[in-house]
Design a protein around this nucleic acid. Sequence first.
DNA 1: GAGCACTGC
Length: 765
Amino acid sequence: MSEDEEIRSAKRQKVLDSEAERVAEAAEESLRKHPHGDRDQPLVHHDAGEFSGLKRHETTSEQAEKLENGPINPFTGNQLGQKYFDILKVRRDLPVHAQRAEFLKIFHSSQIMVFVGETGSGKTTQIPQFVLYDEMPHLTGMQVACTQPRRVAAMSVAARVADEMDVSLGEEVGYSIRFENKTSNKTILKYMTDGMLLREAMEDHDLTRYSCIILDEAHERTLATDILMGLLKQVCLRRPDLKIIIMSATLDAEKFQKYFHNAPLLAVPGRTFPVEIYYTPEFQRDYLDAAIRTVLQIHATEDQGDILLFLTGEEEIEDACRKISLEGDELIRDQNCGPLKVYPLYGSLPPHQQQRIFEPAPINPSTKPYARPGRKVIVSTNIAETSLTIDGIVYVVDPGFSKQKVYNPRVRVESLLVSPISKASAQQRAGRAGRTRPGKCFRLYTEEAFHKELIQQSYPEILRSNLASTVLELKKLGIDDLVHFDFMDPPAPETMMRALEELNYLQCLSDEGELTALGRLASHFPLDPMLAVMLIGSPAFGCSEEILTIVAMLSVANVFVRPASARKRADEAKLSFAHPEGDHLTLINVYESFMTASDKGGVHQWCRDNFLSYRSLTSAKNVRSQLRRIMERYDLELVSKYGEIGEGVYWDNIKKALVGGFFMQVGKKKSGTGKTYLTVKDNQEVLIHPSTVVSKEGEWMIYNEFVLTSKNYIRTVTTIKPDWLVEYAPKYYNLDHFSKGDVKLSLERIIERVEASKKFDSKKK
DNA sequence: GAGCACTGC
């Protein structure tokens, strides 16, 4: 860069600071004009109809059941169909139904209640309907919400309940998840993800459109559930008319009760089959080997029924599948065992391969008496613990480990660690054996270890995460005093401090800890604050279209596929998209090529040929258009200078915009050594991850993530000029806060150089 | 020269 250009960009930064503020304020103005954005129309009001004579919050189960018995659908006024009555019979058999009167009694007498129901109790489908018959939301213009931690659950439960109530999905009963809002102005019962309700709360702090909020699966303690619980506890004080039901598994009911001022509890038994638990007599050093032996033993000796084995990750699972298949073949030959089919199951597996786990178990073709049964074995990650249920599992093999996210605030790194599971997890895993008939669970640890070494519950997510987004969300929720916010499990003070510090450097929070205009704007994006700030700043560099693409690509699962059988070809394919100076820049090339291929057709094959994940790229496309809509809503300029300016300047502008978000994630090459980099401020020694396509390594690199595996790696990197750091993030690059060393020394020199050229510039004038 | 447990906005 010439000195002249350096000076110009320094000036541009001055413009930029006020520009970002101006942009944020303009967005606020637009928000003031349209406070509800794209919210629904007001709800339709009916006359009391079938409900006439019933008093809200005083109804009885007899009254509700009479209405349920028909013949008129009390919520729509339509005649009820035969299918409705068929389902009604089944519903009346569910364990929750026996306690409907008891439920109503507690619901009437208390603002908050805790409801505990085991699998098969029918709580997720029935409790919200019990509430509807008492709340009569169609008469009050309010809604009942029921949250779920996962999208599929919200969608499928809503569909089931719409059937049960004989209404069309999306009318009286609907669901709301990211990318899809299937509700209308008729909707009185809304299933939604907990994250979605949190988003709504950020716009409407008192959640005024709901008369009752049900938090389902609260025991999973997702980040969103935890924040919602803290928030609802406050909202209850401001809105005495709002009712809250916390639904959870048994184990931690008491903790929820205590948290909500000793809220009353209703417990309903589940409907599952007994599962016999077996422990190993002694500690197993090699759990993988023990697991494989156990599976084969079950196959050789136990009665018919499929096997589910829990392992920790893709590689381990694929490895175990190979070994079980091989040894299973031997059993079939030597010991007359039945045929054995082995299926891997993990999140990154393409959907059609995930579907294969539902194929029926193989049948033993032998007609001899006492022929051993054929069987399928599913080797799975935790995905089969909560997200996916497989019927027909009779045997569960549980080695007692899973990969869990841990956050280290000192080095600000999230990493995955293989760790012992909790008692609650072990119980959940065992339960998977008893869904269709009595089953057995083989725990590959001792009974003593179970009692003495496993913790009761896994640590909630809020204790294992970087809280930058969370703190921004809480601020946007109107919670000013974070230190005294009533978390069910308060995060470590150091984690909190790190998050506040990071948001302050990003200028999302003022030095007083107050939300800035930029922070408010950033909170509207479903992104890490770093990425949100980068995106908001990008129009000033004339490349918001490009930054949108990068941010979307960084928000989805890895788009590069690298099968063990074709590593070399996959790496070559990746290189064909490479930008020599940046992995971030390469992502633009990949996305653009994907979009071109989409226009031409045959894009699935194109993805396979290029070792790219169709699923991830499609999801990046969705994320990108969602983010683009938010940009439009807040009048953030959508701009690209592609083809208008020289290629060097074009890519440099994008890099500068990247620096606007990633200035805290920078590595500087360690002098003399060659490959090692030092992270700025923390002075950690790191290597560039071997997956990089960067061939023109620079002295200074920004990185997307820090990964701790066999070594310390920085992954997804792009070269930058250090001058941009001091220009665009002067606050962070105030060297008073840097410890002595290589990095500080170089930065001092750069600042001197920039200062000198500024003086030179003012003399020229 | 090497890994992506699982979710969610």
